[in-house]
Design a protein around this nucleic acid. Structure first.
Lengths: 230, 230
DNA sequence: ACCTGAACACCGTTCAAGT
DNA sequence: ACCTGAACACCGTTCAAGT
């Protein structure tokens, strides 16, 4: 609106200054839209109204860029699942937040296990829930083991879910998940294995089972006699 | 040893004919050794004593090549975990086989969730264990749900485990998992979260919890009174 | 049927030069 | 301090040509 004549000449290109933050956000958006393999430094630069080489003033290289995207994904988890209230609810919310991020960014999600990095927001959100659990009376050792297990379960199972799921950024039909020459019997197996089922309910069921088993001190609201530990 | 003079001239290059099978095996070996990003059609061709373009006679493109690598990984799972004997043991063996493949091929494993494909050996091994469970008396619907859940748990949690684990093809030390500027407190969290713990025992515990919860008809060998279903 | 030379547009990255 | 032109080796893929 109130741009200077000089700025208006630049038109659609960078209307704000280039920043590591802006670059990462643009990279994630590009991956969401065009897929992981389609991302290149050249195209990302163009997206930001800048040449590819300019990006190297803010990221060390492409690997560092992808690490930054992973950091961004964990930031979403942190924002969605702060530790507050009963820590059991908090851990559940954390698991669901992790799954939601994977489902909202199916193209970028494989980076979470490919980049071999634990960015700061990941450590922060994990630390927060561990602290909540220890404040709630759990021994520290068990709080760590619990968060480790829940994190693996939530991230991993949602990655697998997205990879073989249908609709919503996943494969549109089962046949897209199969190699062309597959036999009819195996295609029928895939139809049920990938197509049927209720992902939400199955994720929640598995989560409940793990939490119930991992935290034997208090059997939740069921009020059932305690089982032998471990 | 008993090669013809003509063949000996070719020396180290292709001593056997080029095959889709050989190409895939070489690709997996290359990824295992040099990492996923290092693989290129040019270098893979050179590895096989052939020019890059020759590969296109046996694979459609690089994506098809990577699909084939995924197929190879599932073949290892199928070989390691045939359905035989009690189906409960079979499903446990299946989960452990999946985890072992991920741990033996940490560089290639992310392809399992990135390629969005269910190759024939994956469907075969899943079908075998579903059949074993239904033969053992489980309703078909539950057998599918059980295999779905166990597959997600085993694949996913081992992917996450490898991604943040230490040693054996993983990051050699915790500091390799952290961005340089991290605070000391968060580094300490990472030290415990990634470094401590017993991955084998934690994987097995989670698996037991899920199986025990998913299969309420027979409480395994514990001989405990049945709980209310679902 | 399968391998290759030549060629294409594209990729990640460097570096000296500009401002 | 940050952006760029020019350039590098490398990449995926095609196609006509060889055998």
């Amino acid at each position: 609106m109130t741009t200077s004549p000089a700025a208006s000449a630049a038109a659609t290109s960078q209307r704000t200054t280039l920043t590591r933050r802006r670059i990462l956000a643009a990279a994630l958006a590009y991956i969401d839209t065009h897929g992981l393999d389609a991302l290149s430094m050249h195209k990302l630069g163009a997206e930001l109204g800048v040449k590819a080489m300019s990006l190297y003033n803010h990221v060390a290289n492409k690997d560092d860029l992808l690490d930054g995207v992973v950091e961004l994904l964990w930031t979403e988890v942190e924002r969605a699942a702060p530790a507050e209230g009963d820590w059991r609810h908090g851990v559940r919310a954390f698991a669901h937040a992790l799954r939601d991020v994977v489902r909202h960014h199916p193209n970028a999600a494989p980076l979470l296990t490919r980049q071999q990095i634990m960015p700061a927001p990941a450590l922060r959100v994990v630390r927060a829930h561990i602290a909540a659990a220890t404040d709630g009376g759990e021994p520290e050792e068990r709080a760590y083991a619990l968060l480790r297990t829940i994190t693996r379960y939530a991230l991993g199972s949602s990655l697998a879910e997205v990879s073989w799921g249908l609709g919503e950024g996943c494969a549109p039909s089962v046949s897209d998940l199969l190699r062309p020459g597959i036999s009819d019997e195996l295609a029928a197996v895939a139809e049920i294995f990938c197509g049927h089922g209720a992902p939400d309910a199955e994720f929640k069921l598995g989560l409940d089972l793990m939490l119930r088993g991992l935290e034997p001190t208090q059997p939740a609201q069921g009020a059932r006699p305690p089982r032998r530990r471990r």
